[in-house]
Amino acid sequence: MIGTAAPAAGPNTLLAEEVTEILLVLDSQQHMDLASLNLQRGRDHGLPGYNEWREFCGLEHVTTLDDLAEVVRDRRVAEKILHLYKHPNNIDVWLGGLVENFLPGSRTGPLFACLIGKQMKFLRDGDRFWWEAEGVFTKQQKEELLKSSLSQIICDNTDIQEIPKDSLRFGQYPAGYVHCSDLPSMSLDAWREEKSHDLQLCGSPKRIKNGDFIFSSKSGKLTALYSCYHGFKLKGAAEIVCEGNRWKHEPPQCTGEELG
């Protein structure tokens, strides 16, 4: 996969026939069409149309055939889409985003670049355990994590000896390939545990059933951040702080209520 170029994609060749003509689904005896399934799922969930999502991303509406042909860069494909949908506002967002001309150095057009970027940002900003969030890892640990790469992971877990520095970018062998020993690797010394003064005074916080905790110092005080395992709900404060030689407040509980 690393040494083979991805198939060229264009408005007329977006999906391989293996997924549009002979897709196998376990609970069906018939071959399925992934494109049709994606369109139907969007409609089942009531997703707004292509133009509404373009407006959401600050892009201009597609109102005419010329507009669509400019976005797609293939007038014949644009004509076929409008023939099927009758009006630009009827175009499904999945199809509209898929046929857009790629941005420079990208594998998506402007709409999908916007939506994927926003979704990833929301996932990152809403995750208090995100590795770059304050208090999750120390500065030294972050520096070690930055040394990691997909290429290094492949080297560590396979018999491959030569690999591109960036496995997500295609390179014709041997140009750009390096020996695995030349790739930077993480040092786990940054995770060597030494009890802090506060931890020695307060002792280890209580463990909870069906959950766990990590330490943080984002507030300047030693803090235990609790979370529950999948399928359990946190009841009580998620954080307890080490103050005055003891842990202030009792740890939360993880109730057995199934999350909806």
Rank of each mutant, 00 (worst) to 15 (best):
N245G: 07
K139R: 12
A175Y: 11
A238V: 03
P11G: 01
H87I: 00
V136S: 03
G97D: 02
R128G: 05
D33I: 01
W130C: 05
F137A: 02
N90R: 14
R43E: 11
R246Y: 07
S36T: 07
G176W: 08
I91C: 09
G231E: 08
C180N: 05
A8H: 12
D212S: 15
W130K: 04
K139S: 12
E258S: 11
L150Y: 08
R128F: 04
T223G: 06
G97V: 02
K248D: 09
G135K: 02
Y85C: 01
R169C: 07
N51V: 07
K118E: 15
R246V: 05
S148M: 13
P205C: 03
E52M: 14
G176C: 10
T4P: 00
K235C: 06
A5P: 08
V77E: 01
D198K: 02
S149D: 06
S148R: 11
L103G: 05
F213V: 03
H45M: 14
H87M: 10
D189N: 15
H197G: 07
L82C: 08
P252R: 03
E18W: 09
Q119F: 12
Q161I: 08
S106V: 04
C180H: 00
I163T: 03
T13N: 12
K248F: 08
L259G: 01
D27H: 10
K147L: 13
P252G: 05
G105M: 13
F213W: 12
S181P: 00
E132D: 13
T223L: 08
S36D: 09
W191K: 09
R207E: 15
Y229K: 09
L39T: 02
L14I: 00
S148H: 10
A190H: 02
L146K: 15
P110M: 07
L37G: 05
D74E: 04
W53P: 00
P164M: 07
T255G: 13
R41E: 13
K165A: 09
E243Q: 14
A238D: 05
F102V: 01
V72T: 02
G203P: 04
P205F: 01
L146D: 13
H179E: 13
S196H: 12
P184N: 12
R128S: 02
I214F: 09
L98D: 00
N90Q: 15
C228K: 01
Q40N: 13
T64G: 07
W130N: 12
E193W: 14
W247H: 08
G126P: 04
Y50T: 02
C180M: 06
S151T: 14
L123D: 12
Q30M: 08
G42N: 02
N89Y: 13
E17R: 14
E258W: 11
G203C: 04
D33W: 04
E144F: 02
